[in-house]
Amino acid sequence: MAEAALAIEGLVTGYDRRDVLTGISLDLPDGALVTVVGPNGHGKTTLLRAISGLLPTRRGSIRLFGKKLAGLAPHQVAAAGIVHVPQGDLLFPQMSVHENLLMGAYLENNQAVIRRRLEEVEALLPKLAERRDQLASSLSGGERRMVGIGRGLMMGGQVMLIDEPSLGLAPIIIEQVYEVIARLKASGRTILLVEENPARVADLADAIHLLDNGRIVWSGPPHDLLERDELLETYLGG
Rank of each mutant, 00 (worst) to 15 (best):
A186F: 05
M155F: 12
T45M: 10
V34M: 07
G81I: 05
Q134I: 00
L69N: 02
E230Q: 12
Q176V: 06
G156E: 02
S137K: 12
E130N: 11
F92Q: 04
L28D: 05
A73F: 06
D30Q: 15
Y15N: 09
D212G: 04
F65S: 03
I82H: 05
A50Q: 01
T45Y: 13
L28P: 01
S61N: 03
R151T: 12
D229H: 12
L11S: 12
A202V: 10
D203Q: 10
A7N: 08
M154I: 01
I149Y: 05
E99K: 02
L21S: 07
R115F: 12
V34E: 07
Q134A: 13
G214L: 04
I24C: 03
Q94N: 15
L193V: 14
I173L: 05
L55K: 03
L226Y: 07
A170G: 01
N110M: 09
L184K: 01
A80R: 05
I51D: 07
A199L: 11
L48I: 08
Q94E: 13
G10L: 14
G188H: 07
F92V: 10
L21R: 09
L48M: 12
G142F: 00
R189I: 09
V36Q: 00
G104C: 13
R17W: 14
M154P: 05
A202S: 13
V121L: 08
G238H: 11
L26H: 00
P74F: 15
L101Q: 01
G156Y: 11
P165F: 07
D89C: 15
M146C: 04
G188W: 01
A112T: 11
Y235R: 03
G220F: 14
D89M: 09
S140E: 00
D133K: 01
S25K: 02
E233K: 12
G53L: 05
E3H: 11
G214D: 07
P198C: 15
G104I: 10
G81T: 05
R58D: 13
Q94F: 15
A136T: 03
K67H: 12
P56D: 12
H75V: 08
L28S: 06
R115H: 10
G156F: 07
P171E: 04
R59Q: 14
R58H: 11
E108R: 07
L153M: 13
W218M: 07
V97H: 00
G104R: 08
L28Y: 02
V177Y: 00
E233Q: 14
L47R: 00
D212N: 10
R59A: 15
P86I: 13
M155A: 15
V77N: 06
G104D: 04
E130V: 13
P74K: 04
V20C: 06
V159H: 00
